[in-house]
C-alpha cells in the first residue's frame, strides 16, 4: 500500500543564535499515521515539531536552512500565511493549558477567531462534535459553561485536544501529551490517538519509549540534533539497524 506523504523535512538545519540544534534532518511523515519522535532530553525533538507549525518563528534568535514541505508545499515560502498554516496543524503540549474560560469558550475560541461558522447553531455543533471526537463530551455535557480549569489533568488534556480539533486541522502535533497524566488518563489519550489517526496525521514527541511502542506506526530516533534512525515502530523496537538506537532503547547509554 502506497502511503501518502504529509510532511517532509529536507536537509533541515536549525540554529538558536550560534548554537546548532538540528543537523541535516531528512524525515518523512505519512498521512493518517502516528509518528513518534524519541530520544534523550535535548536531542531536538520539540525543536523539530515546532518547525512544522512555525512556532519557532516566535523565537527571535531561531534561524534555519533547508525545507519543510506540507502536502508538497514549502511552508516557509513567503507565500505561506503562518496563521492559516497553524489552523491546519493543531498542537497539544505537555502541561495541559486550557484557557481560563468556560469549556465552551475554550473550544469556540479558534472557530470564532477564524470565522469558521455562520450561526450560533453551527458553533454549538462544532463545540459538541469536537468534544465528542476527543472523547470528553459525555463527561462534561452538563457543565459546558463551567471553567476549563476545573477539570482533572486527563480531562484538561482532552479539552486541549478538542480545542485543537475544533479548527479542523489535518495534522496534530503532540509534545509529551501524557507526561503529566496518570496511567488511566494516559491510556484514554492513547485510545483517542488510535481513533484520531483515521482522520488526522499525528506526530508525537515522547520521553516514554513504551508509549512510542504502544501508539505509533513509525518511530524516529534522534540524538544530539541528528536523526539517527527511522522506521516502522515494530522494527525499531525489536531489531533496530543502528547501534546508537539499540543502545538507547535498551538503556545502555550512561
Amino acid at each position: 500500500m502506497i502511503k501518502e506523504l504529509k510532511i517532509s523535512a529536507k536537509n533541515l538545519n536549525v540554529f538558536y543564535g550560534k548554537k546548532q540544534a538540528l543537523f541535516d534532518i531528512n524525515l518523512n511523515i505519512y498521512a493518517n499515521e502516528v509518528t513518534s519522535l524519541i530520544g534523550p532530553s535535548g536531542c531536538g525533538k520539540s525543536t523539530l515539531i515546532k518547525c512544522f507549525n512555525r512556532m519557532n518563528d516566535l523565537v527571535d534568535i531561531c534561524k534555519y536552512s533547508g525545507q519543510i514541505m506540507i502536502d508538497g508545499q514549502d511552508i516557509n515560502h513567503s507565500s505561506t500565511d503562518p496563521v492559516s498554516l497553524r489552523t491546519r496543524i493543531g498542537m497539544v503540549f505537555q502541561k495541559p493549558n486550557p484557557f481560563p474560560k468556560s469549556l465552551y469558550d475554550n473550544i469556540a475560541y479558534g472557530p470564532r477567531l477564524h470565522g469558521m461558522f455562520n450561526t450560533k447553531e453551527d458553533l454549538d455543533e462544532i463545540v459538541i462534535s469536537s468534544l465528542k471526537k476527543a472523547g470528553l463530551f459525555n463527561e462534561v455535557k452538563d457543565r459546558l459553561f463551567e471553567s476549563g480549569t476545573g477539570l482533572s489533568g486527563g480531562q484538561q488534556q482532552r479539552l486541549c485536544i478538542a480545542r485543537a480539533l475544533a479548527v479542523n486541522p489535518e495534522i496534530i502535533l503532540m509534545d509529551e501529551p501524557c507526561s503529566a497524566l496518570d496511567p488511566i488518563a494516559t491510556a484514554k489519550i492513547e485510545e483517542l490517538i488510535e481513533e484520531l489517526k483515521e482522520k488526522y496525521t499525528i506526530v508525537i514527541v515522547t520521553h516514554s519509549m513504551q508509549q512510542a511502542a504502544r501508539v505509533s506506526n513509525r518511530t524516529a530516533y534522534m540524538h544530539m540534533g541528528e536523526l539517527i534512525e527511522t522506521g516502522l515502530t515494530k522494527n525499531i523496537f525489536s531489531n533496530p539497524k543502528h547501534a546508537k538506537t539499540q543502545d538507547y532503547i535498551t538503556g545502555r547509554i550512561g
Binding site: Q210, A213, R214, T233, S238
Partner: peptide, 9 residues
C-alpha cells in the same frame, strides 16, 4: 508474541 511484548509492554 515478540511483537506483542515489544509494543505493548
Amino acid at each position: 508474541v515478540i511483537t506483542f511484548i515489544t509494543l505493548r509492554s
